[in-house]
């Protein structure tokens, strides 16, 4: 039996993402300490914690934008290694939405949405555009297809970025503080889009400080501090009855 077959045999198809014993350093600074997290298929996990606690670094490890130095990360039954082919394949299955949208400023919204399907998946231009328009419809900006990112509001840009990710038909979506760069009145439209995606059954790992969203959408809330997962609990329990003193202190600060 090869190592690959062994991995396949051991992994549960219901598990989308599994981090076990993950450590990461930025040169001498350790930013992740023994992180263990399992995300089941269709599950919505919200990650919160003070700034610098390693939340972003952790989710960036899931699609290998950051490399972990110890432990294992298994995505869709495949372990992340330095192998480029494996990483390329996993990235096609894992969509990511960023705090600063990271839309390509020189391409229209439609071109933003079709670039990767056309060049990574080899989808024809017309098909890619049809899919893109369908997703832009779904995030409720079908009329912005031919606009450039800078002509859109922040909320519209973030929804365009979500549509761009969805065009790759990912199995898992990662959100890295998707509403932190938005004006307060634009946060709602992005969260609504994400909630809709959640109700469609997408597996989601979401770093956010939007506790209302966590309450409404999350199956589990993960609290991180100083590079460690301090507490994991379903939202009702997490908000009404946090166990750890650090969680209590954090919730006290942000819920006022």
């Amino acid at each position: 039996m090869t190592a690959k077959e062994k991995t396949a045999e051991m992994t549960d198809p219901e598990i989308a993402v599994e981090l076990s014993g993950v450590d990461k350093w930025f040169s001498i600074l350790q930013v992740l300490h023994d992180v263990n997290l399992t995300v089941r298929r269709g599950e919505k996990v919200v990650v919160c914690g003070p700034s610098g606690s390693g939340k972003s670094t952790m989710i960036r490890c899931i699609n290998y934008l950051e490399r972990h130095q110890k432990g294992r990360i298994i995505v869709n039954g495949t372990e992340l290694t330095d192998n480029k082919k494996i990483i390329d394949r996993i990235r096609q299955d894992v969509g990511m939405v960023f705090q600063n949208f990271n839309l390509y400023p020189h391409l229209t919204v439609l071109e933003n949405c079709t670039l990767a399907p056309r060049w990574v998946k080899g989808v024809g231009r017309k098909d890619a555009e049809a899919v893109a328009r369908a997703y832009l419809e779904r995030v409720r900006i079908p009329d912005k297809a031919d606009f450039y990112p800078n002509q859109l509001s922040g909320g519209q840009q973030q929804r365009a970025a979500i549509a761009r990710s969805l065009c790759m038909n990912p199995k898992i979506m990662l959100f890295d503080e998707p509403t932190s760069a938005l004006d307060p009145e634009l946060v709602r439209e992005v969260l609504d889009t994400m909630a809709q995606l959640a109700s469609d059954g997408m597996t989601m790992v979401c770093v956010t400080h939007e506790m209302g969203f966590a309450r409404q959408v999350a199956d589990r809330v993960v609290f991180m501090d100083a590079g460690r997962i301090v507490e994991t609990a379903p939202p009702e329990e997490f908000f009404s009855n946090p166990r750890e003193s650090r969680t209590k202190a954090f919730l006290n600060q942000i819920l006022h």
Binding site: N63, Y64, L65, D88, R89, R91, Q92, V94, G95, M96, F98, N100, N102, L103, Y104, L115, A116, W119, V120, R164, S165, M168, L174
Partner: peptide, 19 residues
């Protein structure tokens, strides 16, 4: 941020460079 976007979409390095 542009690199992050391209990498997360699965674009290859040369595709990211050219496009």
């Amino acid at each position: 941020g542009m690199y992050d976007a391209s990498a997360s979409l699965g674009l290859k390095r040369w595709q990211h460079s050219v496009f």
